[in-house]
Write a protein that binds this DNA or RNA. Structure first.
Lengths: 123, 123
DNA sequence: CTTGCCTCTGACGTCAACGGTAGGTTTTAG
DNA sequence: CTAAAACCTACCGTTGACGTCAGAGGCAAG
């Protein structure tokens, strides 16, 4: 399939796909006249890339991890990198839960005027 | 205290504090000759700001929510805004959990050799 | 009083993940 | 065959949260 169809099916822009290629995240074969051609698995690959971006990984980090995902090539370094990023995501989840609880406390306070205004200076 | 001490105690840069003031997130009184002066609660306030930035809120959003946190002012709009941001954070947590599970699956694959995974050796 | 660190106000630089445009080629529909 | 739609490369623009630098003034110590 060509780039427009992949963009539609994966739910990203054409521009984003060319950017992914530029960053070394997504390879494309070329037609005789230079147009990018993708196979089926590219759809899932783009969705994975999007998921990792959503988790806060950078292009560089994703590029580092892709060989491991791709070929199941596993070095001690790549496994460590994967584990490191997983832990980073865990930490980020913990931070988000803390922030959410903090917001919940503010909401609680703002809906029950009886409780004192402790939240503003808590922690 | 002056800006340098607050920066140290809250763990942010002096530049960041001036930026927070510019965005209306953090007020400072001024000494006779124009230097910013902060009271104790500013330390916690900066940490709260950092937490909300970490949760993906923008300066504009934080600025909108601050009156609610500060003065316990509660309007239907502010409560709706708080709830909206809380829900956004919940959704973000769900996405992160999904991404983490996906990474875990990759890790699982790369560490179990019988699943057709090629283990590379360091060169 | 002067040395040296701290602070001030602009104002430009950065970085990431694209968006948008220009100017030209290729593919497809009628 | 032709016109529209899709594609190409190359490059500048955007946004947010600061970093960094310049040039000038403030403050405790020796």
């Amino acid at each position: 399939m060509r780039i427009g169809e992949l963009a539609d099916r994966a739910g990203v822009s054409v521009r984003a796909l060319r950017y992914y290629e530029e960053q070394g995240l997504l390879h494309a074969s070329r037609s005789g006249r230079g147009q990018r051609l993708y196979a089926e698995p590219a759809v899932d690959r783009v969705r994975l890339i999007q998921m990792l971006y959503g988790a806060g990984l950078t292009s560089r980090t994703i590029a580092d991890l892709m060989p491991c995902v791709d070929a199941n090539v596993s070095t001690p370094e790549s496994r460590a990198r994967l584990a490191f990023e997983r832990d980073r995501i865990d930490a980020q989840i913990a931070e988000l839960i803390q922030a959410r609880d903090r917001l919940d406390a503010v909401i609680e306070m703002s809906t029950s005027p009886e409780s004192g205004c402790v939240v503003a200076h808590a922690e």
